[in-house]
Design a protein around this nucleic acid. Structure first.
Lengths: 137, 137
DNA sequence: ATTTATACTTACCCAAAAGAGAGTATGGAG
DNA sequence: CTCCATACTCTCTTTTGGGTAAGTATAAAT
């Protein structure tokens, strides 16, 4: 596929009405966030996870953010939350079909990032070099 | 495609080393942000834009955020910045091939959001209803 | 001489996001 | 009787994001 035809493809996406656009943008803003993406990836790799497992699989996340993100995902219908009334508590999370669909959609972005990280790093060092020449502090 | 085979497909993504994973995650965190996504969409629809055009096409963005986001995108090699040394100033932005690739990759997420926003809205109202039953304030 | 246009930059400020750390409930193991 | 495990929740503090408004440079138009 040439670059020109690709651009045409993208330009020919169905244009919807503005209200719908804003809704879709809101959803993307909500869903395209670091922790959500990471959790979706983890839950794609391992279908069923407890809170502690997710916490360990997601290095750097705080309990607070983990709870918060999982709640938002549950609210949006991306994960199910199974609470077992036992002690100590046990809660299992898994992706819904909707969540799995998002996982599949976002997969393209992961692949892009994996395929292009070298170009991005090069762009960054080029930019830094250029800035250093123009502004030798 | 069945759900099972889809999950298997996703699980069979090439697993890379942890350092690379972290790099890729950092890139996704950087790039999966509201303004970046909107600007990429605008620049996909209209190949070449001046600062003021982007500002008008991107309702709600402040000059500060527009400058900031464009600079980050330039740094990451997603857009080029053509400065014409005229007065009043004239600067043109356009996507690089790298940026266009991201646009294409992220396109799947837009389509997912457009296709599933009704399910998400339903999930949200269901969740709100359930919460109202459990916690009738 | 003054205004206009453009693409910023800088300084200041507020609100929201996120981290740290302690607290909670409770049955079972020792 | 004490401790542990789990999945939180709460409070407090720090960090970040992002808005507003003013300033800059200069050629051309009035």
């Amino acid at each position: 596929m040439t670059e020109t035809s690709l651009r045409e493809d993208l330009q020919n996406l169905p244009r919807t009405d503005p209200a719908l656009d804003r809704l879709v943008e809101e959803i993307i803003g909500r869903v395209a966030d670091k922790w959500t993406m990471l959790l979706i990836e983890i839950l794609t790799e391992q279908e069923c996870c407890r809170f502690g497992e997710l916490s360990r699989a997601c290095p750097g996340i705080s309990q607070k953010m983990l709870t918060q993100t999982l709640r938002a995902m549950e609210r949006d219908g991306l994960v199910t939350r199974m609470v077992y009334p036992v002690v100590p508590p046990k809660v299992e999370y898994r992706l819904t079909d909707l969540g799995l669909g998002l996982s599949k959609a976002f997969c393209g972005v992961w692949l892009w990032a994996e395929a292009n990280f070298e170009k991005i790093e090069k762009a960054r060092s080029d930019y830094a070099a250029k800035a250093a020449v123009q502004d030798p502090s």
